[in-house]
Every structure is written in structure tokens, then in C-alpha cells.
């Protein structure tokens, strides 16, 4: 079957989808977005967490056909999502790119003749939570990281100043085997503190 959906603001179409495929499989194997991870495929680890119409869900448990017409944000779109939110364009995760904008969308700027695919040293725009994970040492093997980022970003979207217990509850659906979670807590605290410092700096 064919599935149409919007991913990270861009309309996407997947063809020849087997009816038993998950949204996770479609993202990873058909749409070239392997950022969402396939760690358990039973909703127990959260590595495949995406926003579906703004709501964090395990994409391994969404049948591909159920995503028809829906709006999906994955870790690959997190930076843009956070940027739009900061600009006041979107606070819910449901508002992606407009139709006109989507039509003008390009995967990556075409590389200059003879140049490598990505320009060395080019700064990569990261969402605040992504930067915080790097800075706090919350990334080791990194396999749980994409799902944790999507879940943590959504937590901070609805609760700018979470307590440790709030963070633990919000991330209790995301397993990490490397870090013992301490640095992940640090990262979420860091992102929250930076956002507050920035807000205070604006006098808001």
C-alpha cells in the first residue's frame, strides 16, 4: 500500500508498504531517516520515540497505515522543531512546514563541484536539548539518544522547570544501558537551566 505523511515538515510518500510494517520501519528503511532506533520493537525501550501529531509515541507500535496523513517529527527534525518553537512558530509539535515552504524544501544543498558532501567545520545547528546531551556527557553508545532527545524535548516544552522526579517520570519509558542515567538527568537539567537563563536574559 501507499502511505502519505508529513515528516519533519516535509510531505513524504512511501510505496509498496507491507501492511504489517511499523511507522519505524517506514521511517528507517523507506524514507532514509534511520535516526529513530530499532532497539526492542515492543514499546519497552523508547529508542524509536517520535512525535505523532505532537504526541511522543513509540513509532515501532504505530502501524504504517495509521500514520496516513499524520505529522511526524523525528530526531532528524528536532533542531528545526526547537528553532520554530523558540521563534514562536510552533509550541505543540504539530505545526510543520507550510505547503509552499514544503514545496521549496531540499534535502541538502547540492555540494559544490568536487567538494565533499558536507563542508568541514560547518557548524551544525542543534536543538538546545541536543547540545545539552553532548555537553553533559549523556551520550555513550548513543543508541537510546534519539528517543531520549525527543522525549526530553517534549518534557521541556510542557514543563520548563521540571523537578528530578518529573524528569525521571517523563523519561521512564526510555531505556539506556550505558550511562546509568545520571548524565542524562544532568543534560535535561542543563537544557532547562540554559533556557531559563536565556529567558531571564531577555527580561521576559
Amino acid at each position: 500500500m501507499r502511505v502519505n505523511l508529513t515528516v519533519n515538515g516535509r510531505p513524504q510518500q512511501a510505496d509498496d508498504v507491507w501492511e504489517g510494517e511499523s511507522l519505524l520501519y517506514v521511517l528507517r528503511e523507506r524514507l532514509g531517516l534511520p535516526g529513530s532506533k530499532n532497539a526492542c520493537e515492543q514499546g519497552e525501550c523508547g529508542s524509536c520515540t517520535v512525535r505523532l501529531d505532537g504526541v511522543p509515541v513509540c513509532s515501532c507500535l504505530v502501524a504504517a497505515g495509521q500514520a496516513e496523513g499524520r505529522d511526524v517529527v523525528t530526531v532528524e527534525g528536532l533542531a528545526v522543531h526547537a528553532e520554530q518553537r523558540a521563534a514562536g512558530a510552533c509550541g505543540t509539535g504539530t505545526c510543520g512546514t507550510g505547503l509552499d515552504e514544503a514545496r521549496r524544501w531540499q534535502a541538502l544543498p547540492p555540494p559544490a563541484e568536487g567538494a565533499p558532501a558536507a563542508q568541514p567545520g560547518q557548524p551544525v545547528a542543534l536543538a538546545p536539548i541536543q547540545q545539552a546531551f553532548i555537553d553533559a556527557g549523556a551520550v555513550q553508545c548513543g543508541f537510546c539518544t534519539p528517543g531520549l532527545l525527543v522525549a526530553a524535548d517534549e518534557l521541556l516544552e510542557r514543563n520548563a522547570d521540571p523537578s528530578d522526579a518529573d524528569i525521571r517520570e517523563a523519561l521512564s519509558g526510555n531505556l539506556c544501558r550505558c550511562t546509568g542515567y545520571e548524565k542524562i538527568l544532568d543534560a535535561v537539567r542543563l537544557a532547562a537551566a540554559r533556557a531559563q537563563a536565556a529567558t531571564a536574559g531577555q527580561g521576559a
Binding site: G20, E41, C60, A63, Q66
Partner: peptide, 26 residues
């Protein structure tokens, strides 16, 4: 019927079940 998919998709992902028809109630 499939709605949240939180039971059924596990069974499909792990090849425990192959329904003839999936009916999306969402």
C-alpha cells in the same frame, strides 16, 4: 482492530500473529 497498537504491533513485529486484515480505528 488496531487503535493504540501497543499490544497488536508487538505481536506483528515479533511474528507471533499475522492477521488477514488490520482495521485502523484511529
Amino acid at each position: 482492530p488496531i487503535a493504540g497498537g501497543t499490544d497488536l504491533m508487538v505481536e506483528i513485529n515479533f511474528d507471533h500473529r499475522r492477521p488477514e486484515y488490520l482495521m485502523d480505528l484511529n
